[in-house]
Design a protein around this nucleic acid. Structure first.
Lengths: 340, 340
DNA sequence: CGTTAAACTGTGATCGTTCACGGGATTTTT
DNA sequence: AAAAATCCCGTGAACGATCACAGTTTAACG
């Protein structure tokens, strides 16, 4: 096979068009001070040589990489996948490249931070939904001098920019709905309680029970891991420790699927014997048996919003100004279907 | 707030350690010709200044970005998400950065190719599962001189490196299973037939029917779009145009969920009145009602394999050698559950 | 017609790192 | 003991683009 060809550079284009590299650069960047004739000649040269400017060389001199770092956890769950999709879409539209870093454990933070700094990202969207601990903050401090950080779905720390969905409100809507349907023994299957979003959903459940004057005990709560299978186990455990159960709020749709399955196996009829409400509103939820009542949260929009905010902050920063991100909570809404 | 601080460079470290930049570079890259004492001094300086070498400057001089481009389509479906997860994992392990490009339409190819070339990726994993047409090949040709390309789950073109799962075999296994269960009127709900994987699954269905001596007609086939909702519509359409239906092979699990839902609504009992087999084996499938018989394909492993192969090819290329990727098909396997 | 401004284009330095090369100090070889 | 080899470290150029500045040509004005 042929050997690796030398890259076409701006100088090749310049020579081919009979101008200087600077002029080619001006054409590339739409600077005004180029005559129409020259511009056309340069553009023809670019096309003929199939020249593509090196983003790397450009980043080096401009001290701006055009990249946004995204720190996320596994996208085998609906939420993170949706969020990432929104981020990706908006980033592409605004011309940003994403440097995706998957963290599966806080021990990854060091590697992630090192990589993001080395790649000189201009901003970081931190979508890894860990509880904010001192340990993590230390890493964030490492990152902060290099790039603004935007947190998604986390606890709002002091002076940190956080965007999220109002998980607590969503959960409350769900549980209030169950109460309105006459249920009084409402169980809860949570996500991993190390996560802020899972904690918030639990608080929402408590809020609703409290404002209806219903007491709650630990017997009503089981912790899952977001997976369908854990929802399945969760319902069995719940029935054992809290037999009077007549409804469950499940902290995500995937676990709710497991709950429906377990209920079916145990001969419980949903919603007659047991009402079920989920959280996420993934497209599949409408096809669960029975179709799932759930809380809709627009994580795609949240991802888009995050990138738009980041874009704003970075532009300000490039211009030497300082821009703050206004913390924001998106409102979820209840989607009522057959399971309640 | 404070102004943006100047980046710590290799020269700062050199000055701080009382050596030249070249020596610092040698320490960074584990070159032998540095005395232990100097090495230690440099490392201390690095730590004290929290110095992180600029990946950008390094890429420029080395003419190697350490990045692999990944072209994929939306990860709201299980397959692509799984694939991406595998790619990501292996890339992190081998120290590659990913430049993720999401294509939603062939019209995106130009932007994607331009970006990947500009970022100087050293290899491209093309996981966007479009049918290979001449139009696309042209874009691949554009990319090829810059970086080796590895295709996933596509038609093997002339001399192109393709890794995939044997979709056709998987589908055949599924349908043979239905035949072995005594079904004779086996419908098919396909994915978008512009996609190679969907075509292959259709061929597998035909294979199995043919080798069992069963004829098939167009009435037995409906096209979906991978979504649960389309599976739902699909079953209704199928029953209308082919009332003798006693089993369906559905080309992915998400559509199979829709099929189960529609069957339930129509009062069909699965598997008594209608057997259903899916494709993917997503974790949730075990919790469908009834639990879904499906074809397991290890896309995570495929993604990992793709990166390992790419790593091998790039290393060879850097060393001036030429390495080919051996085309490979992973074997799927049938997972029998309650729906058949 | 000379002066000034505007329009256009080129030169050299620069971003942060590594490569190619060279040279001095120390050790080993004959 | 001189020559050769080894070890250790530094200098200047290079990667491919842009920035700051300066120069040349053309148009506009009094």
């Amino acid at each position: 096979m042929s050997t690796k060809p030398r890259r076409v550079t701006i100088h090749d284009v310049a020579k081919h068009a009979g101008v200087s590299a600077q002029t080619v650069s001006r054409v590339l960047n739409d600077h005004p001070d180029v005559s129409e004739a020259t511009r056309a000649r340069v553009q023809r040269a670019i096309a003929e040589l199939r020249y593509r400017p090196s983003a790397i060389a450009r980043s080096l001199i401009k001290r701006a990489s055009g990249m946004i770092g995204v720190v996320a956890s596994g996208f085998h769950f609906f939420g993170p996948a949706q969020l990432l999709a929104g981020i990706e879409r908006q980033a592409t539209e605004l011309g940003w490249q994403l440097m995706l870093q998957v963290a599966t454990d806080p021990s990854d933070y060091d590697r992630v931070a090192t990589t993001l700094i080395a790649q000189q990202v201009e901003g970081v969207i931190w979508a890894y939904p860990e509880l904010s601990s001192d340990r993590e903050r230390a890493f964030h401090q490492q990152l902060r001098p290099h790039a603004p950080i935007l947190f998604l779905s986390m606890e709002a720390g002091s002076g940190e920019a956080v965007l999220s969905v109002d998980n607590r409100l969503g959960a409350r809507l769900a549980v209030e709905h169950l109460i309105a349907r006459g249920r009084r023994h409402i169980g809860l299957i949570t996500g991993p309680l190390t996560l802020w979003s899972a904690q918030q959903r639990r608080l929402g459940w408590e809020d609703a029970l409290a404002s209806a004057g219903l007491p709650h005990t630990e017997r009503q709560v089981v912790q899952g891991d977001w997976s369908a299978e854990s929802g399945c186990r969760g319902l069995r455990a719940l029935l054992q420790q809290y037999p009077e159960l007549d409804a469950v709020f499940v902290s995500n749709d995937q676990m709710a699927l497991g709950v429906l399955y377990a209920a079916h196996q145990l001969g419980l009829r949903v919603p007659k014997d047991l009402s079920v409400v989920g959280f996420d509103n993934m497209p599949e939820s409408a096809c669960f048996i029975p179709a799932l009542t759930t809380v809709h949260q627009d994580l795609f929009a949240l991802g888009q919003l995050a990138v738009r905010e980041m874009d704003r902050v970075i532009r300000a920063r490039r211009a030497g100004k300082q821009a703050a991100i206004a913390p924001l909570m998106l409102q979820p809404r209840l989607v009522v279907r057959e399971s309640s």
